[in-house]
């Protein structure tokens, strides 16, 4: 390879764009961050799928999802705590077009729950897309960005699944057991009333971060009537919501494991074998004292990490 070809190849694989800009663009409009990074096909595909999903959700629900909010809770930023906020463009469109309804009660469409769930899922999937955009802008095409985004995506669908696929099976099973068990306990305590978005709009938003489990449960038991006094309903609502929020920690853990492992790869390939999947940081936990041996002894590794913002 001539020096000119080497330079061209190097510039093609180098990271492009600012990660923060890429993430913000993706948040505002799914796919825009990838277009900014020069990933045209992924950008257009993501735009079509995620916005198509949001649009279909709006059509099925007639844009009435936010009419479930109590009148005293309705304000400009009240919907910012819903999963739809993950797709900001879709959310703004919904608020501009439908907002909180016409101001008087009217019947909900038959598929309002499905439509509402589709809009929410579009927002949550956009978080995984933001992860991918962030990773692409950090590593360019030098390293595949998909594994880190996949880890987040799988964990957002089923808690612990991303860890399981990464080979951290004990941790994945532990996370799945704890979070799904916590959600199940909360559901029993609340006598399934937590599953209805119409009844508990904000608690539903929290537990929706658990992925597919609350959505399936809502499809089966979401319309169950409350027939008596529920002494532990507050605990049940809190448990379900906290389980979903804790899944964010699991997602970050899955992302960091994959990203740090990739960043440390040049060091491992060159014989700095003490760096584990967490790279040079592993040395801190194994020896009890932080060392910079992995980074200092390997210029490639240092160069790789210097691309991080």
């Amino acid at each position: 390879m001539t020096p000119a070809e080497r330079n061209k190849s190097s510039s093609n694989s180098a990271p492009k764009g600012d990660p923060t800009v890429a993430v913000l663009l993706t948040w505002i409009l799914p796919g825009a961050g990838h277009l900014y990074l020069g990933r045209t096909v992924v950008g257009l595909l993501a735009f079509a799928v995620l916005n198509g999903m949001y649009w279909l959700g709006l059509k099925l629900s007639a844009g009435m999802t936010f009419e479930w909010l109590d009148p005293e809770l309705r304000s400009t930023f009240a919907v910012a705590l819903s999963p739809e906020a993950g797709n900001l463009g879709g959310l703004v469109y919904q608020m501009k077009t439908y907002a909180f309804g016409l101001g008087y009660p009217r019947p909900f469409p038959e598929l309002v729950r499905v439509g509402s769930a589709l809009c929410a899922v579009s927002g949550m999937l956009n978080f995984a897309l933001m992860t991918h955009a962030h990773r692409v802008s950090r590593v360019g095409s030098r390293t595949p960005a998909w594994p880190a985004a996949r880890a987040v995506l799988l964990t957002s669908i089923v808690p612990g699944l991303g860890h399981f696929v990464q080979g951290r099976r004990a941790r994945g099973l532990c996370i799945a057991f704890l979070l799904l068990g916590f959600f199940a306990l909360g559901t029993v305590l609340a006598d399934f009333s937590n599953l209805s978005r119409e009844r508990h709009f904000y608690y539903w938003s929290g537990q929706a971060l658990l992925g597919i489990a609350p959505l399936i449960s809502e499809g089966i038991w979401g319309a169950k009537a409350v027939t008596g006094h529920l002494p532990y309903v507050e605990a049940g609502l809190g448990f379900g919501c906290v389980a979903g929020l804790l899944n964010i920690l699991a997602m970050i853990d899955a992302y960091a494991f994959e990203a740090d492992g990739q960043d440390a790869q040049p060091a491992r390939h060159s014989g700095a074998s003490s760096a584990g999947p967490w790279g040079a940081k592993d040395e801190k936990s194994s020896s009890g004292a932080p060392t910079a041996q992995g980074a200092a002894s390997e210029p490639g590794a240092a160069a790789t990490r210097s691309t991080a913002p």
């Binding site: 704890l178 853990d253 936990s285």
Partner: peptide
Amino acid sequence: ALGVCFSERSD
């Protein structure tokens, strides 16, 4: 447990 999983890299 989730906090520990998040802060500690090895099981």
